[in-house]
């Protein structure tokens, strides 16, 4: 018994030679054509806005960059009106704040993500996931308030302790501190890179944690159960299945957090007291970042000063763009399977 195939049996009218491949190009109807046009147009509009940001910053920054030349990268003072300005100090400050923030945020985010995805009871889990997501949406000015009014006063003891016992490491040295004098003023420890970094760390931890938890929860259940079946403890399973699988998420989440930390303005601005010199001592009073420089100086800037601020903004923009680009490519590569793509 053969199956009946229309067009192939001899009883069908018409010779088989006429059966040429049909034209399968679709000709969309006018509504669809309009839809595609509008869709492409909106894509182009978004693209234009995004590229315009970069283009305009470069365009406006050009004046300052051509005045300063190469010294823009090496000067640490910021006096545009006397043609002495550069980003050496602000970039160092930004990177230091970012590094302090990320080195505090990484263990916190990792621990919380592992707890939520591996240890928390099921009902608590959903609540905690929502809570962390909510914390990621808390305005940065709230974190700034906490840092400026609470942390500032309570963390100087820790700063003093670190600088007293670890002051031999250049990073933790505080100049002008007198640890042996109990009556010495503590103001030398306030408004430092360290405190700003701590606040920014709390701010970026929820985002990093959320990305990591997402990656951990995607670890294949078959391999998890396989590890248990081979007699692994829970930590053994995490170390051999969850962490290798989620490594991309951990790195990507950390980089995303770093990107947010580098660009943070208002929380940093509320805490630091600005200095325009390279300040490698993170515990010492005085710090600066690109974004707080812009917030500080945009109001009183001359033509050239504005251009110089644009150049600083451009630098920050390029920096966060690179960090974020690396982060998103790592996160994207770590995902197995393309999701629900049809």
């Amino acid at each position: 018994m053969t199956t009946f195939v229309p067009g192939l049996t001899g009883t069908e009218p018409g010779p088989a030679a006429d059966d040429v491949p049909r034209d399968i190009r679709s000709s969309p109807e006018p509504a669809d054509r309009a839809f595609r046009l509008v869709a492409r147009g909106s894509g182009a509009a978004v693209l234009a806005i995004m590229l315009l940001v970069g283009f305009f910053l470069t365009y406006r920054a050009w004046g300052a960059l051509s005045v300063a030349g190469f010294s823009f990268l090496t000067t640490s003072a910021w006096e545009p009106d006397s043609h002495r300005f550069g980003i050496a100090a602000v970039i160092t400050g930004t990177v230091l704040i970012g590094l302090v923030a990320i080195s505090l945020a990484l263990p916190l985010a990792l621990g919380t993500a592992l707890y939520i995805s591996e240890y928390a009871p099921r009902r608590l889990k959903r609540f905690l996931v929502s809570l962390v997501d909510l914390m990621a949406a808390v305005p940065s000015v709230v974190y700034g308030l906490w840092g400026a009014f609470f942390l500032q006063g309570h963390v100087v003891g820790l700063s003093r302790w670190i600088s007293t016992y670890f002051g031999w490491i250049p990073l933790f040295r505080v100049e002008g501190a007198e640890p042996d004098d109990p009556l010495a003023s503590m103001t030398v420890y306030t408004s430092s890179t360290f405190i700003a970094g701590m606040v920014v760390a709390l701010m970026v931890t929820p985002i990093a944690c959320s990305v990591m938890r997402e990656a951990f929860s995607q670890a294949p259940p078959g391999e998890r159960e396989g590890a248990y079946a081979l007699g692994a403890t829970r930590w053994g399973m995490i170390r051999s299945v969850v962490l290798p699988f989620g490594l991309g998420g951990v790195i990507g989440g950390t980089m995303l957090g770093l990107g947010r930390a580098l660009g943070e303005t208002i929380a940093v601005y509320m805490i630091i007291s600005p200095v325009f010199e390279i300040q490698p001592h993170i515990l010492q009073n005085g710090a600066i970042s690109v974004s707080s420089l812009i917030a500080l100086r945009y109001g009183s800037a001359s033509e050239l000063g504005m251009s110089a601020l644009m150049a600083a903004g451009l630098t920050l923009f390029v920096m966060t763009l690179i960090v974020n680009f690396i982060a998103s490519s790592i996160v994207a590569r770590s995902r197995s399977g393309a999701g629900a793509e049809a």
């Binding site: 693209l47 995303l256 923009f317």
Partner: peptide, 17 residues
């Protein structure tokens, strides 16, 4: 790709633009 890269646009840069 461009949109994903722009999600990290620092808010102050948006303001500056």
């Amino acid at each position: 790709t461009v949109v994903e890269a722009m999600t990290a646009l620092p808010s102050i840069v948006a303001g500056l633009f």
